[in-house]
């Protein structure tokens, strides 16, 4: 059986999420193959060298522009989109949920705050559309994607930028800015993969983002249980080792990417002309590559989430025909 909690996203949102994820993953792979070429030289070579990687990055960049423009239009021009603005706004409950999450880990709270729950139990009305982390993801990613798009467009034509800033170095500073800006998103996506891939009740992937709410039957047995009912679910035998491995890889990936971004300050043209890193730094090379592995794993999970959706669709269709046949037999 599949563990299904409440699907709260529309079909449009789930499809958009998958497309955005794919596009952003490829932007990461191409963009950071350039910026972290000390550590990811093999990716640069694999994708045909810096010329072809830059071309690919632009192709996916156009894809991103189209996706975020589409999303912004959907949010503004539709009633559903507009009504969701209030759902996305941070509330005092979100701050409480963050504090309570820390208390929960320390053992000072018995449950996660409703605004933090991924596995909610109860009815869909009882939990908010987005957890406090979900809201944070929307805000940070929206700001990041906007700034990345603007800076990306600015550096599209280096010579065009140079005419405004007189020097090549100034123009290239925008490239630096663009690359460093993406690091926040890079780290955030690694966390996002861990958060939605390794919740014990959903492992190996939380289907909320892949199975739209129209496909989730809203029926519950009316037994008023205390809590979320998570104790009824059986933990996957591989969860403990898998979550430890993924957690460690996520932490190593985030730390390494962060360190590499500091090393590569001012890349491609440093403010101080000191370029650190390099393949001699084996530890950093391994770490950044683990980070890329986490991203790759996230891409696999995104595909898997869609496979689960297709299976779920088929299962629902079969049940429907079975039900219809049973009715016809009566």
């Amino acid at each position: 059986m599949t563990n299904l909690d409440h699907g709260k996203f529309t079909r449009m949102t789930t499809v958009f999420h998958s497309l955005l994820a794919m596009d952003v993953f490829f932007l990461f792979f191409t963009g950071y193959a350039i910026m972290f070429n000390d550590e990811l030289w093999w990716m640069l070579t694999l994708m045909g060298g810096s010329g072809s990687v830059a071309a690919l990055h632009r192709v996916f960049g156009v894809g991103l522009l189209a996706l975020i423009t589409f999303w912004a239009l959907m949010m503004v021009t539709t009633d559903t989109g507009r009504s969701n603005f209030s759902e996305v706004m941070p509330s005092p409950g979100d701050m409480k949920a963050f504090v309570q999450d820390i208390q929960f880990v320390l053992g000072n709270a018995d449950e996660r705050h409703p605004n933090a729950r991924q596995f909610a139990g109860g009815t869909a009305d009882e939990i908010p559309l987005l957890s406090y982390v979900g809201k944070g993801v929307i805000f940070i990613f929206a700001a990041e994607l906007t700034l990345l798009s603007i800076s990306g467009l600015l550096i599209w034509s280096k010579t065009g930028l140079m005419q405004y800033f007189a020097t090549q170095t100034a123009a290239m500073a925008f490239v630096v800015f663009h690359g460093l800006l993406g690091v926040v998103m890079l780290m955030g996506v690694m966390f996002h993969i861990f958060e939605h891939g390794f919740h014990p009740a959903f492992y190996p992937v939380e289907t909320k983002a892949f199975i739209p709410r129209s496909m989730i039957p809203e029926e519950h047995s009316d037994d008023d249980d205390e809590g979320t009912g998570i104790e009824r679910l059986q933990l996957s035998p591989s969860w403990a080792s898998a979550s430890n491995l993924a957690g460690a890889a996520t932490v190593i990936g985030i730390v390494s990417v962060l360190t590499a971004s500091i090393y590569d300050t001012g890349y491609p043209v440093s403010t101080e002309l000191l370029v650190g890193g390099g393949p001699s730094n084996l530890l950093l090379t391994v770490g950044v590559n683990i980070g890329v592995l986490v991203l790759f794993f996230g891409m696999v999970l995104s595909v898997y989430g869609n496979l689960v959706r297709i299976r779920w669709e088929q299962q629902m269709a079969e049940e429907e025909t079975d039900g219809a046949e049973a009715e016809a037999a009566d």
Partner: peptide, 25 residues
């Protein structure tokens, strides 16, 4: 942001472990 995201990873890692211990093993 990196430090904050690391805190979030550890908080979720810890929370997941606690939730997992409540599930049927």
């Amino acid at each position: 942001m990196g430090l904050f995201i690391l805190v979030m990873v550890f908080v979720h890692w810890g929370a997941f472990r606690r939730l997992a211990s409540r599930m049927r093993q």
